[in-house]
């Protein structure tokens, strides 16, 4: 059997602030295959963002092992990460196209080719024609689409999304879920998607990792065997309900 793209084994993270130790993540173990869309679900404060930061190489971990990349998909930690957060965090003074360009500039990628790619990506996320607008001219959902395009411009192998639709209204959120599935299919990225919405976690995922609070640890990970392309109708099916129920159960809130 070939190695998985990501393998986390017994990952532990302890924050130390003013002599106090705080166990943020304990014993997280799961694999992600290349091209998967894995969701992580759990109550707030359970260490989801911390795990993403460990994967992004922003925080060291205190125990266990984190390995990204395999023979078929070599991983360069300095350029193969794309990130999307709850807030779009666009630079107010830059036009949309220039916002999308930011990672390419930081990595020093060829400007002309990157601009072309940024344009294509904006078209892919449904923002063709908005290239020369400023962020304040865009709705929250459109800003978040821009942030997704920005996370893809340098063609990273792994995209980390931290509650990217958490600040959007419910309808926009559903729409963005469908959009994300399309973008995922077209871009063929490996995506790790953090959410505290159980329905969202099930709807998107090839597999979902359930984390519990205090002290944060992994409860289980569940393969979601619903067919793609997924439609909103599926949310009313018995299978969908079963998955949701299992997660509620794991989170101890049935």
């Amino acid at each position: 059997m070939t190695e998985p793209f990501i393998r986390l084994q017994g990952v532990r993270k302890v924050y130390r602030t003013r002599g106090q130790e705080f166990l943020a993540v304990s014993e997280v173990t799961f694999d992600v295959e290349a091209g998967e869309l894995v969701t992580m679900v759990g109550p707030s404060g359970c260490g989801k963002s911390t795990l993403l930061k460990i994967l992004a190489g922003l925080h060291p971990h205190d125990g266990g092992s984190v390995r990204i990349g395999n023979q078929a998909n070599p991983f360069d930690p300095s350029r193969d990460i794309g990130m999307v957060f709850q807030q779009a965090l666009l630079l107010k003074w830059r036009r949309i196209l220039d916002n999308v360009m930011l990672p390419a500039e930081i990595l020093g990628l060829p400007a002309k080719a990157s601009r072309e790619r940024a344009r294509d990506l904006l078209a892919m996320v449904g923002l063709a024609g908005a290239e020369d607008k400023y962020p304040y001219e865009l709705s929250g959902g459109m800003q978040q689409r821009t942030a997704i395009a920005r996370a893809l411009v340098h063609d990273p192998k792994l995209v980390l999304m931290d509650e990217p639709f958490g600040a959007l209204d419910a309808l926009t959120r559903e729409k963005m879920n469908l959009e994300l599935l399309r973008i995922w299919r077209e871009s063929r990225k490996t995506i790790l998607f953090v959410t505290h919405g159980i329905a969202e976690a099930v709807f998107l995922a090839t597999r979902t990792v359930v984390l519990t609070a205090g002290p944060a640890r992994m409860a289980d990970h569940i393969r979601i065997e619903l067919p793609y392309p997924r439609t909103l109708d599926m949310k009313t099916t018995a299978a969908f309900g079963d998955y949701s129920r299992r997660i509620y159960h794991l989170l101890g809130m049935e």
């Binding site: 922003l58 350029r79 957060f85 965090l89």
Partner: peptide
């Protein structure tokens, strides 16, 4: 500066 924005740049070793 938004801390998350700093993280984004740092994840690319900016």
């Amino acid at each position: 500066v938004e801390p998350d924005l700093l993280d984004l740049v740092r994840s690319l070793r900016g």
